[in-house]
């Protein structure tokens, strides 16, 4: 039963990578306008979940169901998911040598919204605005996608893409990693400015620090392929102070009790 405000909903999702189960039955519901964070230590399966939801062919969903705006996500390939409004900001964005940022963004905008969706002049105007938002130099447009980019530049480009593609559901995979504090602020500001109240984000992160700038409504803790605890923003602060071992031991106690 889908709530009419439900944007993304998945039930009992299992993910396998190279024959190994890395996500072991996760369920989550993200309503329109909500900000969720999934936190967890390295190897907890959170990035695998993000990739599987976006349709990475190497991350097979072996069981469970998932819906985006009430439409079965698992019937769609990565292209169709993107065109339906799902977006994944990559932890390690790929270089596409010889393809300029401007060409790439234009291709992506056309792919998402249709061939005649945007005039070249408007496109450039919008792009210029997003460059200012993410404080990148105009020369960014003519550089090749992620080719020789610093870690910070790559993450800015991811959020720039998000700002251009206006996804209804964005999954941000470790967007804060590799950013210094100034860059983190700029990138967070970029993320916040894309939020309209109708679209939603799911942040996947190891550390709490990005959550200081992009405040989540819900925080979920993931370990060993499962969500072991969910709560409000205070859960992130508690985690930061007491570490993952704390939830782990507490969960163990519950199981034993």
């Amino acid at each position: 039963m889908l709530n009419e405000n439900t944007l993304l909903k998945f039930n009992n999702i299992h993910v396998e990578v190279e024959g190994k189960e890395v996500v072991k039955g996760i369920s989550l519901e993200v309503k329109s306008g909500e900000k969720h964070a999934i936190m967890g230590p390295n190897g907890s399966g959170k990035s695998s979940l993000a990739n599987a939801l976006a349709g990475h062919p190497a991350y097979g969903i072996t069981a469970g169901e998932a819906y985006l705006n009430g439409v079965n996500l698992l019937d769609m390939d990565a292209t169709e998911r993107a065109r339906s409004g799902l977006f994944l900001a990559f932890q390690y964005p790929l270089a596409i040598p010889g393809v300029t940022v401007a060409n790439f963004l234009r291709s992506a905008v056309k792919a998402r919204f249709g061939e005649d969706s945007i005039e070249m002049r408007d496109f450039r105007k919008i792009l210029k605005g997003k460059f200012e938002l993410l404080q990148v130099d105009p020369s960014f447009a003519t550089r090749y996608v992620n080719d020789g980019f610093s870690g910070g530049e790559k993450k800015r480009l991811e959020i720039l893409q998000m700002a251009m593609l206006k996804p209804s559901m964005a999954i941000l995979d470790e967007t804060d990693s590799g950013l210094d504090i100034d860059a983190l602020k700029i990138v967070s500001h970029g993320i916040n400015s894309t939020l309209t109240g109708d679209n939603s984000i799911l942040m996947v992160t190891h550390y709490q620090r990005i959550l200081n700038y992009v405040n989540p409504d819900y925080v979920h803790v993931m370990m060993d392929g499962n969500i072991i605890r969910s709560g409000g923003p205070e859960l992130a602060i508690q985690l930061e102070e007491e570490g993952y071992d704390w939830v782990k031991s507490e969960t163990m106690e519950k199981v034993e009790a």
Binding site: R83, G98, A111, L165
Partner: peptide, 28 residues
Amino acid sequence: AEEQLFYLTSRGLTEDEARLLIVNGFIE
């Protein structure tokens, strides 16, 4: 690379469009 294709398809390009973009970039 499969990863490059996934990156581009996750932006809404089809696999054929993604390959073409990669090839055009290669001969840029």
